[in-house]
């Protein structure tokens, strides 16, 4: 579980996060949604400490991250996995070396043990043996995302963070990635936080949803509540795609 309290973050006088307070549960996919520029990436990067917040607290299972020393933070980071918007694979390493990298850095396992674990993780994200020795530039964007997910889970993290895992992918591939992240979250009992502005993902895996708008908390709920929420900004966001308005109207119609 991750709890954030009253997070405030500004850049050069411009306040991007204006007091965010919420909890992200274990074994669930927690989504942060909002329009482009609403502060999703800044919030996620603040939670993991890539941005230093101006005010507020972040607790990882009651461990106060904001007041930790650098050393303790580094230890905690070994419990985190993160999938970046562009995949962020190391382009000088092969697919297999990318996934093995955290193990090389932080474990003393034998080459054989590492090989087994890497193969398992890559299999888990459906990357075939033939691709293991390719470099990131030689595989498709969707594969890069999947390799990034494999790398993020290789050390069995307790916390998984994904920044727009579907950006740049077709709807079908997005669905595959979404359900992959959701399954892994349940299987490994991770606390997973995902940034997205993709309504398909919201309806698929929105176990918990935090809607932010211009850096403020807009709405909190889940995928079965979101279509009926009474929040003007959220409605604009959700019903920007007519399909969801029709879906809601149909559902309401059925009930009455």
């Amino acid at each position: 579980m991750i709890r954030v309290e009253n997070l405030i973050k500004s850049f050069e006088g411009k306040t991007v996060l204006k007091g965010i307070t919420t909890e992200f549960q274990k074994g669930q996919t927690n989504l942060i949604i909002g329009r482009s520029g609403s502060g999703k990436t800044v919030l996620l990067k603040s939670i993991v400490g890539l941005h230093e917040v101006d005010q507020g607290s972040i607790y990882y299972d009651d461990r106060d991250f904001t007041r930790m020393k650098m050393k303790e933070r580094k230890l905690l980071r070994q419990e985190m996995g993160m999938v970046f918007q562009g995949g962020a694979l190391f382009d000088s390493l092969t697919v297999e070396e990318n996934v093995r990298f955290p193990m090389d850095m932080f474990t003393n396992q034998t080459a054989k043990e590492k090989e087994t674990r890497v193969a398992y993780c890559l299999d888990r994200v459906n990357i075939k043996q033939e691709a293991f020795q390719l470099s990131p530039a030689e595989i498709s964007g969707g594969m890069q995302k999947r390799v990034a997910i494999a790398r993020a889970i290789v050390l069995n993290p307790k916390y998984l963070f994904c920044d727009e895992p579907n950006s740049g992918l077709d709807p079908e591939t997005s669905l595959v990635i979404d359900s992959l992240i959701h399954d892994l979250t349940v299987d490994l009992n991770m606390t997973t936080i995902i940034n997205t502005h993709d309504m398909n993902s919201v309806m698929e895996i929105g176990d918990k949803i935090l809607f932010i708008s211009e850096g403020e908390m807009g709405w909190i709920g889940n995928k079965s509540e979101i279509l009926y929420a009474e929040n003007k900004k959220l409605e604009e966001f959700v019903f920007a795609n007519r399909q969801y308005k029709e879906m809601r109207d149909a559902r309401i119609g059925k009930e009455s």
Binding site: L50, R73, R77, M82, M105
Partner: peptide, 17 residues
């Protein structure tokens, strides 16, 4: 390029200096 493609963030988040 490692900075702008978030590879450096990626190292940091793993706990690598």
């Amino acid at each position: 390029s490692m900075r702008v493609t978030e590879q450096i963030d990626s190292l940091e988040i793993m706990g690598v200096n």
